[in-house]
Measured scan of single mutants.
Amino acid sequence: TRVETATETAWISLVTALHLVLGLSAVLGLLLLRKQFPAHYRRLRHALW
């Protein structure tokens, strides 16, 4: 049972790390898009919101 708990903890930390990386890359991508293609960014924002 101890090994299972350790594996679960590892999976949870892995998933958390993946979510963090995905969130950060999404934010960075949006910032880059905003900087380089303001028109595209505006259109995207209108489409999303």
Rank of each mutant, 00 (worst) to 15 (best):
W49S: 13
R43N: 06
S25W: 03
W49G: 12
G29V: 12
V3D: 02
L22C: 00
H46W: 06
V21D: 03
L28R: 02
W49I: 11
S13K: 13
R2E: 09
T7C: 02
T7D: 08
L44W: 10
G23D: 02
S13A: 05
L30N: 03
T9P: 09
E8P: 09
V3K: 00
Y41W: 13
V15E: 09
L20G: 09
H46I: 09
L30E: 00
L20R: 01
A39H: 06
R2G: 08
L24H: 02
S25L: 08
L44F: 04
L22P: 10
V21Y: 00
T5S: 03
L31G: 06
H19I: 14
L44D: 10
A6W: 00
A6D: 03
R42H: 05
R45I: 12
L14E: 03
H46M: 01
T1N: 02
H19E: 02
I12M: 15
E4Y: 06
T1V: 13
K35Y: 15
K35D: 08
V27P: 10
L20H: 02
L28H: 01
L33E: 00
A26Y: 00
H40V: 12
V27I: 12
H40F: 15
L14H: 00
F37Q: 10
E8H: 14
R45H: 07
G23L: 09
A10L: 09
L32A: 14
L22Q: 00
W11Q: 12
V15H: 04
L24T: 01
F37K: 11
L33T: 10
L18P: 02
E4D: 04
R34T: 13
G29F: 11
E4G: 02
L24P: 02
T1D: 03
E4S: 07
F37S: 13
V15D: 07
T9A: 00
L18Y: 01
V3N: 03
T1A: 09
A26P: 07
F37A: 14
L24Y: 00
T9V: 10
A6H: 10
E4L: 05
Y41F: 10
L44M: 05
L32S: 12
G29P: 06
L32W: 06
R42I: 11
S13V: 08
L30T: 04
G23F: 08
E8L: 03
I12L: 05
S13E: 03
H40A: 14
G29M: 05
A47S: 08
A10C: 05
T5F: 09
S25D: 00
E4F: 03
L14V: 06
L20T: 06
K35E: 09
L18W: 02
A47Q: 03
H40K: 06
L24G: 05
L48C: 08
K35A: 11
L14W: 13
R42C: 04
R34F: 15
R2I: 12
L22N: 01
T16S: 04
L14Y: 02
L24Q: 00
G23Q: 00
V15Q: 01
H19R: 06
G23P: 09
V27N: 03
H46D: 15
S13R: 04
T9S: 12
A10S: 07
A10Q: 09
L33P: 01
R45S: 09
L32Q: 13
Q36H: 14
R34G: 14
L33I: 09
P38W: 15
G29T: 07
G23N: 04
L32Y: 11
R34C: 15
T16P: 00
L30W: 15
L22S: 03
W11A: 09
G23R: 02
L24F: 14
T9E: 02
R2W: 13
L14K: 07
A39L: 08
G23E: 00
A6F: 02
L24K: 00
I12A: 06
F37D: 05
L14S: 05
A47G: 04
L14R: 05
Q36I: 13
R42Q: 09
R45G: 07
F37H: 04
L48S: 05
Y41M: 14
V27C: 09
V21E: 03
V27F: 12
E8I: 04
H40I: 15
T7K: 13
G29Y: 02
A47L: 10
R42L: 12
T16R: 03
T9K: 11
A39D: 11
H46P: 06
S25P: 00
T16Q: 06
L33M: 11
R2K: 05
Y41C: 14
Y41A: 11
H40L: 15
R43L: 04
A6Q: 03
F37Y: 08
A26E: 02
A6V: 04
R45V: 12
S13H: 02
L20W: 15
R42W: 08
T16D: 04
V15L: 05
R42D: 07
V21L: 07
G29A: 08
R45Q: 07
L32V: 14
A26G: 10
H46N: 15
L30A: 10
V27S: 09
L48T: 07
L28M: 10
V21G: 11
L31S: 08
R42S: 10
P38F: 14
L31K: 04
T16H: 11
L32I: 13
K35P: 04
S13M: 10
G23T: 04
T16G: 09
L32N: 02
I12C: 02
T16E: 03
